[in-house]
Nucleic acid binder design. Structure first.
Length: 211
DNA sequence: AAAACGGGGGC
DNA sequence: GCCCCAGTTTT
């Protein structure tokens, strides 16, 4: 790596930690993303699989009650909340959105349980629209690298849209999660294995760097 | 700004 | 046993 320009560092991270989404169906992406909120992916994959095996369309979930979903989504945690929101979303899609997940951020945000992170994941994964999903990983790593000095994910999102090329917004989402889970961990980051450590403020200046 | 929701896995 | 996890909503 010749320079430590953010776009170049981001491309290196994306190359080392690819994360392709095989599932692109908007409804399934939306539901599985809600299930994965504050929960590791490994725990939610089985829940998503079993849920879609039993209820494959918005209509079928709209006709169910939250209690019907409890046992299916329980491994994802916060299951009462998530089951209630998934059923409520399905009903909304059927009643007001012609049975389809909307493609506009403003409309997605009206759905219960859908905030900026979830909405932007759906936009980028299902619709191919450039969108940054700034979760705890993206927030933490961006600050460690020295790309931003922010205190909230929303601030980080605003800064990153100015810092990173649009074509990186989608790919960086998943790659940062993988990178953050395997190397740039919250507590004890494995800086020795990090492919971009020579561009990282935390590695170069551990005393002064932000957490 | 803080609490609440929550089962599963790492250490 | 304790802490964290592709957050969001409510108090």
């Amino acid at each position: 790596m010749k320079r430590c320009e953010p776009n170049e560092v981001a491309r290196t991270i994306i190359e080392h930690f690819p994360r392709e989404h095989h599932e692109k169906d908007p409804f399934k992406v939306l539901v599985s993303t809600i299930l994965s909120q504050r929960t590791r992916d490994e725990n939610t994959e089985l829940a998503s699989k079993r849920l879609f095996d039993r209820y494959s369309s918005p209509v079928s979930i709209a006709n169910a009650s939250p209690e019907d979903l409890y046992d299916l989504v329980k491994p994802a945690g916060m299951y009462k909340q998530k089951a209630g929101r998934i059923v409520a979303i399905a009903k909304l899609l059927v009643e007001r959105y012609d049975n389809k997940v909307p493609m506009e951020l403003s409309e997605l945000l009206k759905l219960p349980g859908v905030g900026r992170k979830t909405a932007n994941i759906v936009l980028s994964v299902s619709f191919g629209i450039p969108a940054l999903a700034v979760d705890t990983h993206v927030h933490r790593i961006s600050n460690r690298l020295g790309w931003v000095k922010t205190r909230t994910p929303d601030e980080t999102e605003h800064e990153l849209t100015k810092l990173l090329d649009e074509d990186l917004w989608g790919p960086i989402n998943g790659s940062m999660v993988e990178f953050g889970r395997r190397i740039c961990k919250p507590l004890k980051p494995l800086c020795g294995k990090c492919p971009v450590k020579e561009c990282c403020k935390l590695f170069l200046f551990p005393e002064t760097a932000e957490r």
